[in-house]
Design a protein around this nucleic acid. Structure first.
Lengths: 154, 154
DNA sequence: CCTAGTTTTTTGCTTCGTCAAGCAAATAGT
DNA sequence: ACTATTTGCTTGACGAAGCAAAAAACTAGG
């Protein structure tokens, strides 16, 4: 049993088909794997890690909620809840924005930064093991370029 | 503010760093984008699509629940629920396994196959637009190989 | 300056998917 | 044949995250 090619749509070439299948599998498997490593090794989800990392790379470890949500590619509501959770653990603090009383800044605390530094090696090792150990002598530069091309738009 | 390189872990090279960031973003953005297209255009989630597709590619449009769960990279319980939902829409039927009374086969119905064929062009267009339109003249074969290498293990 | 519309964040509700526990059938050991 | 273990699937309880609507504060036009 199989789905035949529909009319009016250019079918994928064999190579494209292969890329698509690989990508499909990749999108499914890799996030789970990395998440798993982080959860097992550090009791931390990928979302949480992403928040800490984004904050740590921001100007003063400080970001508006909306900005942060966008950076982590989450909904605002999701970020509200995640930030609340991180705040309850003392990794993040939310302080009122001075120039706009509607706004809040999420700020990375010392404890939060320490947590990130603690988690970072685990994540790094995970990335090495899951990804780069399998890449052989592939040209990383063009790979990065390709991935960015895809991720950039979307 | 930034996380410094931790002791005892080989840091990533600049190229690796770039690949990792791109991959991170890709894993976050692409599944959402494809899912979004499918939901908007076809009122169908990626998981549902995955079930129909996997069934359609199986021997007689028939798979054991456990097999199907594995193919779709879901937990068995998740698949139970998803199959129940698809069954309620008439896209799938669950029939008792003959040679093992514990087992159930998920079977793709005519309606299910029709639904897949209906959704396929949408998905194809989505994949074209989100992925291949951005890939330029990149060597697809080695890309597929790289992606498979990563996804294969994990 | 006040009223109408916009933006920023939070809250309510729903959906999806996981884990843990359970039931029922199959298989193995005695 | 009878008990013990394992396997296949379902169910219950729960967490994560999304959307839609509310709440609060800003901005502009009259």
């Amino acid at each position: 049993m199989s789905a035949t090619t529909p009319a009016g749509v250019l079918p994928l070439s064999a190579e494209e088909e292969a890329v698509m299948r690989a990508l499909g599998r990749l999108m499914l498997v890799l996030p789970r794997a990395l998440n798993h490593d982080l959860e097992q090794g550090q009791r931390m989800t990928a979302s949480e890690y992403s928040v800490l990392r984004n904050l740590s790379e921001s100007e003063h470890g400080l970001m508006r909620m909306s900005e942060l949500a966008q950076a982590c590619d989450m909904s605002l509501s999701g970020m509200t809840r995640l930030a609340a959770k991180l705040e309850s653990h003392g990794y993040v603090q939310r302080i009122k924005c001075e120039d706009d009383a509607r706004g809040w800044n999420a700020v990375l605390t010392e404890k939060g930064l320490a947590r990130l530094r603690e988690a970072w090696p685990t994540h790094l090792a995970s990335v090495r093991r899951r990804i780069f150990d399998h890449l052989g002598d592939l040209d990383l530069q063009s790979l990065a370029k390709a991935l960015n091309a895809i991720a950039g738009e979307a």
